[in-house]
């Protein structure tokens, strides 16, 4: 899960870089350098390098908890799909989570569902971002 977004940074198509560090950038930097469960300070406040979904997966690994998180992830992915921003691998993660539940591997199921839910949430954020900013890359 943690590697997925670094890929976009690798594709340096960008002629202009925003200089001031935003919270998002600070998060990405700290996450990349220290991984999860790290705390950093940004503009005087403390933040965690964990994604909310990672915390959601930190519950007792029971069938009930795994199924509940899977359902949330499915619902979130539906939302992403409805705005046209479903990611390529998300359905596979959901399927694997489902299979893990059947096999009684609840922690693995929780982790997979969390990952899928994260994909979906970021897809939805991308859509919102694009709605506001897509025109920034149109040549004038």
């Amino acid at each position: 899960m943690k590697k997925t977004l670094l890929l976009s940074a690798a594709i340096l198509l960008t002629p202009t870089w925003v200089m001031a560090e935003t919270l998002k950038e600070a998060f990405e930097t700290h996450r990349a350098m220290y991984g999860k469960d790290h705390t950093f300070t940004w503009q005087g406040k403390e933040y965690s390098t964990n994604h909310p979904e990672e915390l959601e997966a930190r519950v007792e690994p029971t069938q009930g908890n795994a199924t509940a998180l899977l359902e949330l992830a499915k619902a979130e992915n539906k939302k992403a799909a409805s705005v046209g921003y479903e990611w390529k691998l998300t359905r596979g993660l959901l399927k694997n989570a489902e299979a893990a539940i059947k096999e009684g591997e609840y922690q693995r199921a929780l982790n997979l569902a969390a990952q899928a839910k994260y994909h979906a949430r970021i897809g939805i954020e991308q859509h919102a971002y694009a709605e506001k900013n897509w025109q920034l890359s149109v040549p004038q």
Partner: peptide, 14 residues
Amino acid sequence: IKTLSLGVGLMAVA
């Protein structure tokens, strides 16, 4: 705990 995400990728808009 803040929800964070696109980060670097978003800056890559020309």
